[in-house]
Amino acid sequence: MAELTQDGRKIGDILLEVKNITLAFGGVKALTNISFDIKEGEIRAIIGPNGAGKSSMLNVISGFYHPQQGEVWFRGQKRGPMRPYEVARQGIARTFQNIALFKGMSTLDNLMTGRITQMHTNILWQALWKGPAEREEIAHREKVERIIDFLGIQAIRKTPVGRLPYGLQKRVELGRALAAEAKLLLLDEPMAGMNLEEKEDMCRFILDVNEEFGTTIALIEHDMGVVMDLSDRVVVLDYGKKLADGTPNEVRNDPAVIEAYLGVGH
């Protein structure tokens, strides 16, 4: 099954599949009968105009919304109704469109919180600290420090994130999602509001994460240059419906997509 991309990365089997998802808020249909899949190791982009249902789709995948119809399959198993924290435990991490960091905590604590699904010492050992709790803390600290090195945020390790500039906050948020060592990483507009340099850095991080750790990534992004360069496959949504699905080239030349989203030159 494994196929290779042009740059030599390995794309594996289907990691996550959504089948016929329909999500409605009262009478408003946010998503209508959407199906697509995400394969292991690929970078999958979800694009579409504002209000197309992209973020709703991510919220369905991360268990925050429960669709009226349709199924989510993760690692070959159908997922029952789940609370978001249970989804996180299965190995799905995400970032948010408008930064959702824990503002009162330091960068380090934010990243450590990202690993919370893998920390287990009970409250009595925690109260004692010496022993298992400290050992666990140090083991996870080592992993988190690797991510801090990877993202180049050593200097702000102990700074409360509320004090950081926007671009760095976005980076810390990526770090927090990375810290979970998830199978699937969902990025909701990782480059929104960034300048060109910050965007380039972020692209580099996304590619490196995908290459070095083999993490599967699904991302929502409005910058078409970024989407076309980064992603292996693109799914296009509009008004809650799926318009197109395919490689960046196929999508770019799809008349329906050009009509709805990309636009034509005048």
Binding site: F64, P84, F102, K103, I116, T117, A180
Partner: peptide, 11 residues
């Protein structure tokens, strides 16, 4: 600090 985000990352 942010209860919804906390739940989504696994708290």
């Amino acid at each position: 600090d942010m209860d919804i985000a906390a739940e989504i990352i696994g708290v």
